[in-house]
Structure formats: C-alpha cells, structure tokens
Amino acid sequence: MLQSMFDQPKQPQRATSDAAVRTLAADPNANLNFGWFCLDKPNQRLIVAFRGTEFIHDWLDDFDFVPAPYAPVPGRGTVHEGFQLVYLAVRDNLIALWNKYSGGYSEILITGHSLGGALCPLATLDLLNVNQNLSPVVYTWAEPRVGHDDFVTFFNTHVNVCYRIVNVWDVVPHLPPDIAQYEHEGSQVTIDSGFSLDVVHNHVLGTGYVPGMAMWNKDHPLEVTRHFGTMAVAALVGQVR
C-alpha cells in the first residue's frame, strides 16, 4: 500500500526549486508531490489539498489493517499504521510550510481524495496541536476509515467542521472494515454517481464524485443547503409549515 503512494503518476513530476528538499529523495523515481499548500488571501484561508494514489488496484491489493498509536500527538488514539507512515513522510514539509506562511491566518481548509482523504484527519489534529487557535474546515472525498474509537472521539471533540463526501457505490470508504475496529470521523454526506460494477469508476473523482456531487446539488437547492440549520431550528419552534 505504501509503495503505491510513492509510485510515479502519469503526469511528470516538475522539478522543485528547493534543492534542500530534493536531496531528501532516496528514490529518484519516487513521486514526492503529495498535493498543494495554498494561501487563499481574499478569504484569509489556508488550504491543504492531498492527492491519493493513482494505482488504486495495487493499493487495494496491499491493504492491511495494522493499527499504531497516533504519533504526532501521543496518547490521542490509535490510527492505521500505513496511513500514518505516509503522513509522517510529508509531515516535515507540511509543518515547515505552515510555520513559514500561516501567520495571520486563522482558518484552514483541508481536503483530499482517497488515501489523500485519509491524511486529512491526521494532518488536521497535528496542525491543531501546533496552533490551537486554528479553525479547521475538513472536506474529504472517498476517505477510508483512519482511526479507532479513541482517535475518532478525540478528532470529533476538536474539529467542528468535517464532512466526508462518499459515493454510495464506492468501496474504499468501507475500508478498513469496522470489524477491525476502525471508525469514521466527522459527518458523512452520501452522493450517488449512478450504479457501476467498476470499482475504479466509482472511486475516481472524475467519474465517481464530480457527477455525484453535481447530482447532489441539483437535488438540494442552494437556499435549502445554506440555511438548513436555521430551518431545522425554525421547524422545531413551529415557524416553518
């Protein structure tokens, strides 16, 4: 599983200007880019976007359920060892970017697809531990289960906004199975891209999630979506017929 994350994707890797970082690469063919750290200056928001693996079949073939203590914040629960190892491989660079550019920002949007989605909760709590005034907003796509009950409870206690968008036909969010004691954090939003027997089709953003999200929005008009919380409260006090 871990190996498939470092395999070279179809797109050629652009050379980085940071020679110090390049020297860290032990394997010249490994794909070092795990996504983007962006500054959304107009909205005063930081953005972290993690990629997943492009080798989904290899990843599923190699999938294991081995647990390990959450290393960035000791004593805060148990997580999937493989996901954590991937996160630890990007952690130094992420924290360095955070330390360099986060001044003046109080909100951070963290997103990722598939295995990239699994990195989101691991990174969120780590960054929260660095800056407890941070307001994280987490949107994940096709995220597998990441942690045991202790980690999930810790996450849900400290992260107010976490939505997991799940295509109802996608198998990856069902891994590792709950029988292995892994649980989901946050709130699930279920979308429907249409039935297909193709595991990859159901899982990939372009075929499984872009049409599914568009369909969800078509079925949930903007005003209902944005004011759902207010409407629910109004209904409770009898102001909505």
């Binding site: 860290l24 032990a26 070092l32 880019n33 983007w36």
Partner: peptide
Amino acid sequence: TAFEILANPAH
C-alpha cells in the same frame, strides 16, 4: 500562493 507538499521517502 501555492506550494508543493513534498514527501520525504528517506524518513
């Protein structure tokens, strides 16, 4: 405003 998140496989 955009910076690569790079993994360190030598970790």
